[in-house]
Design a protein around this nucleic acid. Structure first.
Lengths: 348, 348
DNA sequence: TTTAGCACTTAGCAAGTAAGAGTGCTAAAA
DNA sequence: TTTTAGCACTCTTACTTGCTAAGTGCTAAA
């Protein structure tokens, strides 16, 4: 258990270190602390912090640097209640603008603005209807033996893809298949639909179509688009400008990770609605790639319309109060604006 | 004007340098050249090359390194007729596979495979109908006051986007507007449509709709999707693994460039159908960002169906014969496969 | 015109030095 | 018992020095 003074010292070390990036020595801390103590006293306290594993030295006579656990302790116990500067608040209002036409626009703009403000990388996920259901699938002929397949969900999501009909197609058979899908699958939750598509549906379709693959491919394709969680990413390349940016190979691996579908397993905040989750270093992912980064994630709830996610990936040595404050501000802002949007279009 | 021997020396310097990345000295060259000459002779010749600006030294007693102009001369005059190893040819056939379902799939796979084979960054653009025309726009109601706008071009391209109708909408007026668009704009080339959309169309639409913005936004949006050239990019992050990869800020700027719409102005090979264009260093872009890179671009023509582009961005010190050979191979392969595809679907 | 030979230049490396920052520890002061 | 001053110690950083290896330019002879 740390004493009050030890906590103050740890806090000062973290603040200084995140501000300057340099190891911080006892003399500097003595001058920064509110009470009047000598640097020797600080040094004595620091060996305690070091034994507790909260700070480390880069070499035997350097200043102290917070360890991962030190940052953890700081985030868990020493963080000021999150506030946000007037300047940041104004910037958010200013950049987000008053109007937006589509949900995607608002949510992707948010990722962009959040990354600009932090100069880190930001992720946003629009609210997902928890139990989104298939509400219809249809084919629209476009002439020239091309057809557009359209999938609609009950939350209003629409995905479509065009394809070319085989030459020997029987268009009545096609319509029968579409009817089949609507009869059997509408009203089911999307994961359930995906399951059925792998199981009994292909067999049933063969009653009408000799070669069902092409058709089912199209259906599976739009289904996947609709079911897949896709993050908007802002400031993707800001990672390159950071300190830790070491060798190119590692950065290459990180970007390949961020581009992959593993992203959604990494950005997975606690279901708690109010909390903001801070993952530090190895807590983010199993591999060592992101060891020098921290990930701040939060969910935002849009009434009954579902939950979205917002996240920032930055260096472990980041100014947590500001970053957390920004995430919190965006979370509220998104929730508020989206509630308005949904009310406006669906309810009144 | 260079003598035969000077050209051989320059060629040897470029080959060695692209293979090892190290400055190359007179002794090594003497041992590599076909004729029997001493290193002193090579040295004498090298001062000629240096005066001509084709090679430089890193310091007064280092070996020679080809300059940008040296590479230029090499590419223009000293390149072997492009060939491709059996191994590479087999790899292409193997990875591209025998079948493909969609043009996008073939073309984007090509970018991926080309980048894997070179370990550089590859770009592909699918064949663009030169004078693509609008062949139809329509609205499909999806229920729940949502509508899908669908745009089709004469080459079979389809773009769509869903939107929500304002509450006070008059659906007949909407249909009238759609009729208006089809009457006035179908058959026009896409750039012309874009132009009309900025000029007289908005005025005409106000005859039916009080607030035409929402509708015109949707139409403009899908139009832009259809008209915009979008490159497939493979191995985007391979740039990070290269030698020149210096500071993070510069890489960040490069990636932002590649993500922007300026990309299509950079990758703009000569209209010559047969040629492969090699741009070296500052020839690529006006700013200094890509000074240490070379860009190899080529067009491929798919009969009357249009022209596509294929390109590779790698270090200036790259093995040009192999890279050019690969670009050439892919260009032929894409042309061949796409001609088959189009014939199969549209003609027979 | 080519070559051998040699003096010269430079990068890279290892070792050494000095300055500066910061520590741990001890003994005195509070 | 806690805090502080003082000091020896450690380690980084920047600079210098000396050495080697690679490669050059130049000269004079072949």
């Amino acid at each position: 258990m740390l004493t009050k003074r030890q906590e103050q010292i740890l806090q000062a070390i973290v603040r200084q270190y995140t501000a300057t990036g340099q190891p911080v020595g006892s003399k500097l801390i003595a001058s920064v602390l509110p009470m009047k103590v000598s640097s020797a006293t600080i040094r004595n306290e620091m060996v305690v912090l070091e034994h507790a594993g909260l700070v480390t030295k880069e070499h035997s006579s350097s200043g102290r640097v917070p360890s991962k656990q030190g940052f953890r302790y700081y985030v868990d116990h020493l963080l000021d209640p999150t506030t946000i500067t007037k300047h940041d608040a104004a910037a958010i209002q200013n950049f987000l603008g008053a109007e937006f036409a589509k949900i995607d626009e608002l949510v992707s703009d948010s990722a962009q603005i959040l990354s600009d403000l932090t100069s880190y990388t930001a992720f946003t996920l629009k609210p997902e209807q928890q139990n989104e259901k298939l509400s219809g699938f249809r084919l629209v002929p476009l002439g020239n033996s091309r057809v557009l397949g359209i999938l609609v969900t009950d939350s209003g999501k629409v995905e479509s893809q065009s394809f070319t009909l085989p030459k020997d197609v029987d268009s009545e058979a096609f319509e029968a298949v579409v009817r089949l899908i609507n009869d059997q699958l509408v009203g089911l939750e999307l994961p359930e639909v995906v399951k059925r598509l792998r199981e009994d549906i292909p067999y049933q379709v063969t009653q009408y179509l000799a070669k069902p693959e092409g058709f089912l491919d199209v259906f599976g394709n739009v289904l996947e688009k609709a079911a897949g969680e896709r993050f908007f990413v802002g400031g993707r390349f800001n990672l390159l400008g950071m300190e830790q940016h070491k060798d190119g190979k590692a950065m290459q691996a990180i970007y390949e990770l961020l581009d992959s579908d593993r992203l959604s397993t990494i950005i997975d905040p606690a279901p708690d609605n109010e909390g903001i989750t801070v993952k530090i270093g190895s807590e983010i992912a199993k591999n060592k790639l992101l060891d020098d980064y921290s990930l701040i994630t939060a969910r935002y709830r849009v009434d009954q319309y579902g939950e979205g996610i917002i996240a920032v990936l930055g260096p472990t040595a980041m100014p947590y109060p500001r970053t957390i404050g920004l995430v919190d501000a965006f979370r509220r802002e998104l929730a508020k604006r989206l509630v308005n949007y949904y009310h406006h279009y669906y309810d009144s």
